[in-house]
Write a protein that binds this DNA or RNA. Structure first.
Length: 268
DNA sequence: AGCCAGGCCCAAC
DNA sequence: GTTGGGCATGGC
């Protein structure tokens, strides 16, 4: 599948900015991974997006356009953010190809419960182990088997002992309890986010931003505290949140991603 | 050895 | 409503 005339998109920025954990960089700069039940290899060459999938079904284009958020004008968003705040310009130019993926809520909920007080390489390993041991197969692709994350019903049926090989630590209990809540309710909703076990303010903001298109969400983790301290001389989360709301408005979450990426790979 | 990682839970104010 | 200790795990 080919999609032409792509702007404001860089695979490293999109897949390695900390919003997703199931994509791996290949030596040629493409990324291979899975979204929902769909494995794919994605590359951008001279403004043309190449999406290779197992069936190579052209009718999947609508899914990938939505997942990759291709129909949003990030050029306009970047200009507006830079107009509102003189400091963020260098972070935007560093991560100019970031787009906010539209991920599935349940997967995002599981992923960010696992993310808490954890580091990105280990989060990726934990999620991969969980999928491989307890998720349904998503088929073979480019010589490798892919697995979905386990459903709420499957995860709710497991015990901490079952999950021990995944090395999730104390997060295993959070996942089991939250899975039971989601199984009971039948879906993951924005209103319910803060009620899930293992979901505090930061994780809820990540799920809202990465799965529910709440682009005003402004997740603050340890990296964000560092970058806001360095660039804006702020030292507490409340001030950071009100500053983001006043300055970045509806696009606070997108601003947050430029700042996070800038801190992790440039300042950090 | 101790600190850190996309923090949260829970008890004690 | 805010604050602080405890927390599984693994890399540095």
């Amino acid at each position: 599948m080919i999609i032409e005339e792509i702007k404001d998109f860089h695979t490293d920025h999109v897949f390695d900015c900390g919003q997703c954990f199931r994509w791996e960089r290949e030596e040629d700069g493409s990324y291979t991974g899975i979204a929902g039940h769909r494995p794919a290899n994605i590359s951008l060459r001279e403004g043309t997006l190449h999406i290779e999938t197992p069936g190579d079904d052209p009718e999947e284009e609508a899914f990938w356009r939505d997942y990759l958020d291709l129909d949003r004008d990030y050029g306009k968003i970047k200009r507006e953010l830079a107009e509102r705040d003189p400091v963020i310009g260098k972070a935007i130019s560093y991560g100019e190809g970031i787009r906010i993926l539209h991920q599935e809520p349940w997967e995002t909920l599981v992923s960010f419960i696992i993310s808490s007080n954890n580091n990105i390489p280990r989060i990726k390993k934990n999620i991969g182990d969980l999928a491989e041991r307890f998720g349904e197969t998503a088929g073979e692709f480019r010589g490798k088997m892919y697995y979905r994350l386990p459903s709420p019903a499957v995860l709710a049926s497991l015990t901490k002992e079952d999950l021990a090989p995944c090395r999730l630590g104390y997060r295993a209990g959070y996942l089991i309890k939250t899975a039971a809540m989601v199984k009971e309710a039948g879906e993951v909703t924005y209103q319910a986010l803060s009620s899930y076990v293992g979901v505090g303010p930061k994780v809820a903001d990540c799920i809202a931003l990465f799965a529910m298109r709440r682009y005003d969400s402004f997740p603050i983790d340890t990296w964000m505290e560092k970058v806001m301290g360095q660039l804006y001389a702020m030292d507490n989360k409340r001030a950071m949140l009100s500053f983001a709301r006043e300055t970045f408005g509806d696009y606070g979450g997108i601003a947050q991603q430029y700042l996070f990426y800038y801190m992790r790979y440039h300042l950090g």
